[in-house]
Design a protein around this nucleic acid. Sequence first.
DNA 1: CAGTATCCACTCGGATACTG
DNA 2: CAGTATCCGAGTGGATACTG
Lengths: 134, 134
Amino acid sequence: MATQTAQHRRELAAEAFDAYLARCPSRRLLDRIGDKWVSLVICALGEQPMRYSQLRDRIAAVSQKMLTQTLRNLERDGLVRRSVTPSVPVRVDYALTDLGLSLLEPIEHLKRWAEQHMPAVDAARARYDDAALS
Amino acid sequence: MATQTAQHRRELAAEAFDAYLARCPSRRLLDRIGDKWVSLVICALGEQPMRYSQLRDRIAAVSQKMLTQTLRNLERDGLVRRSVTPSVPVRVDYALTDLGLSLLEPIEHLKRWAEQHMPAVDAARARYDDAALS
DNA sequence: CAGTATCCACTCGGATACTG
DNA sequence: CAGTATCCGAGTGGATACTG
């Protein structure tokens, strides 16, 4: 009944770690904001609430499918509030919730790091790729 | 020669936005640290430098392929330093560079937000899913 | 020990067409 | 206007086997 092989021990550890990852708050947050359009939507709505079509124009490269999907996920997570005005045609406004607003702060930190250090990353990348050619 | 249709205007805007995204430092950073194993490797190496096998044991669920790939990418980006000791068998140590160390700070901010607010996200998600059942 | 190499399933995101 | 529905290709990541 004890774990016999190193093989087996590894599998158990991997399983446990998977379960841990599924709950790990940080990893789950990164899963969300790592989504291609999430940060862009959050930042756009951070400036001001917007209608669906405004978002689509502002984030020009997003497809309808992905914009809707992104907004639905954010709404589900309580980060964005969706309000429908039943006029004809309907008007839908999106805004950050307080929770969503609070997320702007850590994102801002990331953005600052990116602006300060991504050039260094690019330089490192260029060096690495150059070295590989020799 | 002017942009004639709304359709065409949209396509041009989307193209321009795509190009912008390819350069946008923040989006590129998120692309990196959004990778499934990157944050875990950075955090592990943030505690102390480690050998390949230590990393593999610590992040039990990672496959060899993904661990190597992740480490190579981080090395290429100048975030991690790889040092080989040519003994038999070889010994390889990984450590964060100064650039990598500096990344710990914004990640820490994210982690704090996650620990404080992910429960609220989960609650929102539960409410949303419940509402959908009715 | 620290990888490489190969194959494969699955998901993400895009294109297109249609609708209340 | 603000979506849905459907299809599909490309890329991500995992399993397995092999190596200096």
